[in-house]
């Protein structure tokens, strides 16, 4: 059969004749006959309809059009044959079904498992450093010192602390802080070391009603108890890397499309963690003498200041829809405990 022989370090090439023997590959050039055994040749694996490329020991390169005989001779010693799968319609069709299924399994179950493993393995000192750092950054960028009267701060602080001790996890030291939320509005959030911050706006929104604050406190406690900050970080990181590797190099427009998909997946993790924190709160409410209706009331107070959210917004939000969270709390009270 006909092949092209490229001389090493030269753009020159010539047409040569290749014939196959059981143990040798024979190249007939104008000047000479060359014989090569299989192990002397570096064969690039078969791919699509691409010409077969064979590197000779001299550095010369032989390029041969694909045909059954040459494929058989070149591939007879190669055991991993991914190209067979790539050409097999059954393999392609099953991949088409398996890829979405596996992606679902990986993102739904395995990435959260990785998150939990990472959170467990991370030393507590990291959580402390990270919390101090986050609070510094927030204080510098968004938050301002609380404008609540000192008396209210002390009173609320003392009350929340008492409540904390009733459900507390002995491994973590909790601390309640008040800040003016500014851009964050009525909000509460937990840092991984057990610091829980309420914004003035939230205190005003629930009109200092301790029952509602307690419910929110428990939700935040859930974030700390289940190491949500670390888990979320690990989940987002592994999602980023996994998506990069699955999709490979991408240019502008493709990046744009998958960037949105990435956001949607990330938000699913965030929403799952929020729901977990809600459920932690719901199952611990009885310890502080509240029930799930108090929890629902707290979120109704929050819902009173925000608009209804549709399906699409839900995909692009880090938190589950308030009405779903309220419904979850209301049904929780009815279900047997």
């Amino acid at each position: 059969m006909c092949a092209t022989l490229f001389k090493v370090d030269s753009a020159m090439c010539s047409v040569v004749d290749v014939s196959l023997h059981e143990r040798y590959l024979q190249i007939d050039t104008d000047e000479e006959v060359q014989l090569y055994e299989h192990q002397q040749l570096t064969v690039s694996p078969r791919l699509g309809r691409l010409d077969r490329e064979v590197l000779l020991p001299s550095g010369d390169k032989l390029v041969i059009k694909q045909q059954a005989a040459i494929n058989e001779w070149l591939d007879c010693h190669i055991h991993s044959r991914v190209d067979k799968l790539e050409r097999n319609p059954i393999a392609i069709f099953s991949s088409l079904l398996l890829v979405p299924l596996m992606l679902f399994i990986v993102f739904k179950f395995i990435v959260p498992m990785i998150g939990q493993a990472v959170a467990l393995a991370t030393p507590h000192a990291f959580a402390e450093y990270a919390s101090k750092h986050t609070l510094n950054v927030l204080d510098y960028g968004v938050l301002a010192p609380s404008t609540l009267p000192n008396s209210i701060q002390t009173e609320l602080g003392r009350h929340l602390h008492t409540q904390l001790q009733r459900v507390e996890n002995p491994d973590v030291t909790y601390q309640v802080l008040f800040r003016q939320g500014n851009a964050l509005g009525p909000n509460a959030f937990a840092l991984p070391d057990g610091t829980i911050i309420f914004t003035d706006e939230l205190i005003k929104l629930v009109d200092q009603e301790t029952r509602l604050l307690d419910a929110i406190l428990l939700h935040e406690l859930g974030h700390v108890a289940h190491q949500h900050s670390l888990r979320y970080m690990a989940e987002v990181l592994s999602t980023t890397l996994l998506l990069e590797y699955i999709l490979g190099d991408m240019g502008g427009v493709i990046e744009l499309f998958f960037g949105v998909s990435h956001t949607v997946i990330q938000n699913q993790y965030s929403q799952a963690l929020e729901t977990e924190a809600d459920n932690f709160a719901l199952s611990n409410l009885h310890k502080i003498g509240l029930d799930s209706n108090d929890f629902a009331d707290a979120f109704e107070a929050l819902a009173s200041i925000s608009k209804d959210e549709g399906e699409l917004e839900n995909l692009l939000s880090t938190h589950p829809r308030l009405k779903e969270r309220i419904a979850n709390a209301r049904t929780y009270s009815k279900s047997p405990q």
């Binding site: 690039s44 694996p45 791919l47 699509g48 691409l50 991914v82 799968l85 790539e86 050409r87 393999a91 392609i92 991949s95 088409l96 398996l98 890829v99 596996m102 992606l103 990986v106 890397l241 996994l242 590797y245 699955i246 490979g248 190099d249």
Partner: peptide, 28 residues
Amino acid sequence: GIWIVNVLLTILTFGIYSAWAKVRTNRY
């Protein structure tokens, strides 16, 4: 066909096969 099979192998190996997938894609 090449792409989808390589994506599946990449997922099954937690991204490690992606190095092989990249070489095959670029070669293609």
